[in-house]
């Protein structure tokens, strides 16, 4: 019982900052402080008129979409290989691919900046951020897809092979539909991570900022803070929707491949 109270208090601590967002987003004052003064939707209308913000959002959406696709493809390869029989060095290779999960993001950011700008002399743009985001999102994709592949009965694909399907068509017709929920879940998670990522994007962004980089610029101007609160409210709502869909698909995937759910993305 005591533990339950503690766990609920902990959840409140986790959600404390997010709960404040909508309060200030609808508050009729330019200063972000209590007491609240009145209700307004002015900050949301201001959002719709900001062309620079729209460009940044569009950039971020393109980057997040590409990241989601590529990270999931790499994750699919690794997770499928993970479900096959072991070979010498396999654990080490998988560990290496999972490394960005524990590497400080600034290390990834500066090392990519050095090699792209200084060594190869390339100019930065959305594609450089995509390269980096795929690197950091792939471990998450692998973790999710491992769950989908892990519980899969290899006998099903073997049966398809015995019945005359080629290796590729057996994968496409039998395995792929079974892990499809995992794929969708992986794409949504990678999309959400990329959309929100700032530390790396700040180093690798070209002349067109991503949305978090744009928000970072706005944080210096007190007058733009209520607009950020409005934007934050929309983003939090959007992330919750995306993550909820991802979770539903992840559970469906684990169920479909016959496993028992142990919960969580990791």
């Amino acid at each position: 019982m005591k533990l339950r109270i503690y766990a609920i208090a902990y959840l409140i601590f986790l959600y404390a900052p997010i709960v404040l967002l909508p309060l200030f987003a609808f508050n009729d004052a330019t200063i972000i402080a209590f007491p609240l003064t009145g209700f307004t939707t002015h900050w949301f209308t201001e959002l719709t008129q900001n062309a620079a913000l729209h460009a940044a959002v569009k950039n971020s959406l393109i980057i997040a979409l590409c990241t989601a696709i590529f990270a999931t493809i790499l994750g699919l390869c690794a997770a499928r290989a993970g479900a096959m029989s072991a070979f010498p060095g396999k654990k080490g290779i998988v560990g290496f691919v999972m490394l960005p999960l524990v590497l400080p993001e600034i290390i990834i950011a500066v090392s990519l900046l050095v090699i792209l700008r200084q060594v190869l002399g390339l100019s930065l743009g959305n594609w450089t951020i995509i390269l980096a985001h795929v690197l950091i999102c792939t471990p998450f994709s692998i973790a999710i897809l491992n769950g989908a592949f892990g519980a899969l009965d290899p006998a099903m694909e073997e049966a398809a092979l015995d019945l005359g399907e080629t290796r590729w068509s057996a994968f496409r017709l039998v395995t792929l539909p079974l892990v499809m929920p995992g794929i969708i879940s992986s794409m949504l998670i990678a999309f959400t991570i990329s959309l929100d990522e700032f530390i790396i994007a700040f180093f690798l962004t070209g002349s067109n900022p991503t949305m978090p980089v744009y928000i970072w610029g706005l944080l210096r101007f007190p007058s733009s803070l209520p607009v950020i609160m409005a934007l934050g409210t929309i983003l939090v709502a959007l992330s919750i929707v995306l993550l909820t869909i991802a979770e539903i698909f992840r559970r469906r995937g684990v169920r479909r491949s016959g496993g028992t759910d142990t919960g969580g993305f990791l």
């Binding site: 790499l74 390869c77 690794a78 290989a81 290496f96 490394l99 960005p100 792939t138």
Partner: peptide
């Protein structure tokens, strides 16, 4: 076995990616 070789080939893609975009840049810094 054939299964192991297919595993190596599949793992090759993410491994190459991490090699080019993680190991190489780390070496560069």
């Amino acid at each position: 076995t054939g299964d192991q070789i297919r595993g190596i080939k599949l793992l090759g893609l993410p491994f190459t990616y991490a090699l080019l975009l993680l190991a190489l840049p780390l070496g560069a810094i």
